Computed example of a mutant assay.
Amino acid sequence: MTMRDHRVHWFGAILWPSFFAAGVATMVFFAVVDPLDLATITWPRIAFSRELGYSIGFFMFWLCTASASLFTALLLRPPARNGRQP
C-alpha cells in the first residue's frame, strides 16, 4: 500500500462513519426541533429556510462527528519508531 493509498484509506475511515453518524443525528434532532424555530431563537433578524437550517445542522453534526472520529484515529495510530511515524 502506497502512502497515498494509506492517506485515502485513513480519510475514508474518518469521513464515512462521521457522515453516517451526522445523518442519523440530523434526523433524530430535527424530528424534535424545527429549524425555523431554532433560527428564530438564534438569529432573529436573519431569514432562513428550513432547507438551509437542515443543511447547517447536518454540517455542524458532521464537523462534530468527524472531529471525534479524527481524535479516535489519532489515538489508534501505532507508536512512533525511531522518532518517525509509520
Rank of each mutant, 00 (worst) to 15 (best):
M1Y: 13
M1F: 00
T2F: 00
T2Q: 08
T2L: 10
M3E: 14
R4K: 10
R4H: 04
R4F: 12
D5S: 09
H6F: 08
R7M: 10
R7W: 12
H9P: 04
W10H: 12
W10T: 01
W16C: 09
P17V: 03
S18H: 00
S18W: 05
S18K: 03
S18P: 00
F19H: 00
F19P: 03
A22M: 01
A22K: 02
G23F: 11
G23R: 05
V24S: 06
V28I: 13
V28F: 03
F30Q: 06
F30T: 00
F30S: 05
F30K: 01
A31T: 05
A31Y: 06
D34T: 05
P35Y: 05
P35K: 09
P35Q: 07
P35T: 02
L36C: 04
D37C: 04
D37A: 15
L38K: 07
L38S: 07
A39Y: 04
A39H: 06
A39P: 02
T40K: 15
T40Q: 15
T40W: 15
I41L: 15
I41N: 06
I41R: 15
T42H: 12
W43L: 15
W43E: 08
W43C: 05
P44S: 13
P44K: 12
R45Q: 11
R45A: 11
I46K: 05
A47H: 14
A47R: 13
F48I: 01
F48N: 01
F48S: 04
F48Q: 03
S49G: 15
R50A: 11
R50M: 02
E51M: 07
E51R: 08
L52F: 05
G53I: 02
Y54H: 11
I56Q: 06
M60P: 01
M60N: 11
F61W: 14
W62F: 15
W62K: 00
T65G: 03
S67L: 15
S67W: 14
A68G: 08
A68S: 09
F71K: 12
A73H: 09
L74M: 10
L75G: 10
L76D: 11
L76T: 08
L76N: 13
L76Y: 06
R77F: 03
R77P: 00
P78E: 07
P78R: 13
P78Q: 09
P79C: 08
P79H: 06
P79D: 07
A80G: 07
A80D: 08
A80I: 01
R81S: 09
N82D: 15
N82A: 12
G83I: 03
R84D: 02
Q85V: 05
Q85W: 15
P86I: 01
P86W: 08
P86S: 06
